[in-house]
Structure formats: structure tokens, C-alpha cells
Design a protein around this nucleic acid. Sequence first.
DNA 1: CACAAATGCAACATCAAAGTCTCACTTACG
DNA 2: CGTAAGTGAGACTTTGATGTTGCATTTGTG
Lengths: 189, 189
Amino acid sequence: MRADAERSAARILEAAATVLATDPNASLERIADAAGLARATVHRRFASRQALLGALVDQLNERYLISLTQARVETAPPVVALHRVAEAVFALKISHRFVMDLTADPDNCLTALSPEVVGRLDTLFTRLHEAGAITAARPAWCREVFLVLLDAVHRQPPDAPELAPGNGDPGSRADLFARTLLGALGGTP
Amino acid sequence: MRADAERSAARILEAAATVLATDPNASLERIADAAGLARATVHRRFASRQALLGALVDQLNERYLISLTQARVETAPPVVALHRVAEAVFALKISHRFVMDLTADPDNCLTALSPEVVGRLDTLFTRLHEAGAITAARPAWCREVFLVLLDAVHRQPPDAPELAPGNGDPGSRADLFARTLLGALGGTP
DNA sequence: CACAAATGCAACATCAAAGTCTCACTTACG
DNA sequence: CGTAAGTGAGACTTTGATGTTGCATTTGTG
């Protein structure tokens, strides 16, 4: 594969992430426009819409794994790890409505988040519980709240008072998110 | 309008609420099937898909208003009112993903929840804040968390341990929801 | 009962998006 | 530089959903 082809694929994935964040049902043409490419090129790089979505999910999972590793979810103090994960996730600028839609899709047997990502997230929640940072014990419940709150914080405008004074940068959002999540799961932020 | 026609309209709205809860993009044919009616009948009762969605939103708002009034959000102790509203909302069995999707839709200028519902919800949040039940001060932020957590609790299976021992009835879900929301907004459930 | 209204059924038109193909062109890379 | 690969543009087919219409049948209501 030539270098520019690879670049095109990357631009398409980036554009898809951006466009699908605000409209999970956007057409491939809108994605192509956002990427500055012709619609035909999208079809050349990705055989079908399903394939593009799959590649997007794969990329999401890869980046999640990197973030989870860098946050040392298995070894660092769990609350610290949570903040690190949150900051990394907001830096990704990925819409989690998209993930929720995929997991809720009936004809989509595979959950959007890979088993490895789910497992490591669950590890984090288990450690948070053992450390007394949260009272919720069941990782599946924690994960659900985790995802919807990511979405909620992601949608706040950059000038929301809750985000002060960082003004919407990933760190500021991560703080609000971690505080809200810990409270929601029965902890004392 | 004849009595059975009115019944059909009601059945369609009910089926639409059920089907759209699991798939916000379900076709009118699936909704018609769920209602046990022909697709043509759906088009007779509702001129267009948009009209059906509008009617669904109207019904949602009506029921919300009734619930807010019955919960006495303006006068009862705010935490009690919150529990009452939550219980009523879960009894409605309405998907809030649907609402979120509508509010996020770019070409849908009108927000799904009516100004009156939004206003009365904001009153509740303001009273919760004044009473010291939550620390979050901005109603818009509270509303966002309110909606996404409704969705999260709504999606929990009836046998989730968090719901014990009511086993998924509206009251049990309402308790989990209120506890989670208060914690998320900085209170002490 | 008798009539008007509602429904089911099927056919039809319309439309947007997905997917395929060709061809002229541009660009990367050996 | 020359070739092979990538791209843009456009035409085309297919598919699924929406919306419309006509007609026979059923059903509610005065």
C-alpha cells in the first residue's frame, strides 16, 4: 500500500470520528467531504460502510488499550489511574454515543469495546471498589455509567462553569468526569 | 374521529416508544408490525415519520408534566420530589436515548423536551442545590446528567444486583437512579 | 340495519444512500 | 524518468424506507 493511500485511510477515519460524533447516521458522502476526499475514495479504502465502522472501532480499541496501559490501571492508585484514563479518552475526541449506538444495535452481536478493553476497565473498577473509592461492586454497571457520563461531559460546551478554569481542555474535562463518576458510583470525590 | 381510530393511534405511539427504545432508526414497518397494524394505517394516522415522532414527543412531554405536578417539584422536599419523578419516568418505559438523539439532531431546532418541562426540571435542580442535596449549580449540566443516567438505569437488566430486591420494577430503578444522580451531582445519597 | 369510517392489502412513485464501474488525471516511488 | 498505484469525477444499479393511491373488507355508530 502506497504512503498516500495510508494517509487517505487515516484522514477518512479521523473525519468519520468527527462527523459521527454529532450524527451517528451521517452518510459516507458527508464523511468524504469532511475528509476532503471523493466518495469513491472512501469505498476504495473501505469495502463497505460496515467495514469503515469496524475499522473505526478497531482504532478506538487500540487507542483505549494504549491509554489504559499508560494510565497503569493495574498498578497505579486506582483514582489516579481513573483520572489518567479520562484525560486520555477526552484527548481522543471520540464520540461515545457512537459506541453506545453500536452496542445497542440488535444485529451487531459484537460489542463495540473489545473484550480486552472491557476486561481492563473492569479491573480498574474492581480496584476502585477494593480501595473504597466507590461502593458500586458490579463492573458492568460501572462501565455503563462510565460510558454515559463520558458522553455527557463530552457534550458540555467549552465555557461551562463546571470545566473552569481549564476551559474545555482534556484535563479540565477529565476532572469533571472523574468527580462525577466517583460520586455516581457511590464514592466521595 | 372514530373510537377504533383513536385506539390505533395510541397503539402506534406505544409500539413506536417500545421499538425506538432499542433502535432509534427503526423503520415505520417495524413499528407497524409491533403495533399489529398495516404500514398504511400508520401513514393514515400520522402524515409522516416526522409527525409520528412529533406526536411521540408531545405525549412524552404531557406525561412528564403530569409526573412533575404529581411529584410536587415546586413544593415537596426536593429529594422526595426527585424520587417521585424518577419512579414516574420509569413507569413510562420511554427510551431517553430517543430524546437524546432528537436533541442532538442538527436539523431539529426544537429540543425534544418542551420549555415547560425543562423549566420545571430546572426548578427541581435549583431547589436540590439550595437544599444542599447537590453541589452542582448549573441546571443545564444537571439535566444532561439526569438524562444520560436515566438511560443507563433504564438499560440495566431486571436482575441487576443494584436493583435488589424490587427486581426491576419502577420503584427499584428509581432508587438506584436517584442515588446515582445525587452522587454524580456532588451530593451525599 | 345502513352508512360512514377504518382497516388490510397490494401496487406504485419517489428518494437518499450504498455500492460498482470507467476513464482521465495526478502522484508516489523504484 | 517511467511505471504502477491512487485519485476525482461522473454515470449507473441496487436497495431500503417513505409516502401515496385504489379497492375490497371489516367495523363502529347513529
